[in-house]
Amino acid sequence: MSDQIDVHKVARLGALAVSDDEVAAVGQKLNAILGLFDQLAAINTDGVEPMAHPLDQVQRLREDVVTETDIHEYVQQIAPKVEAGLYLVPKVIE
């Protein structure tokens, strides 16, 4: 089951850079981790529902009432780059 991991692909999905000289070492560790997962395939889970949450709870609903206030000046103190109330990022090209 454990294919060799495509390091460049998973790095791209995670928005991480892996340089060419790191690829082999990173890939070797990732593949070792994937190797641990092989035993999952051996377990019979026929008819077993996937379990996403430990408790059988259901989603609680919040009343549709505004309680939040304008905090932009405060929270933008910790932002890397802001101007005119906007978060600045390198130009978005579509």
Binding site: F37, L40, I43, E49, P50, M51
Partner: peptide, 11 residues
Amino acid sequence: YYLKAQRVRRL
């Protein structure tokens, strides 16, 4: 992987 692990989780 993911779904299988979620099933194992229930077990």
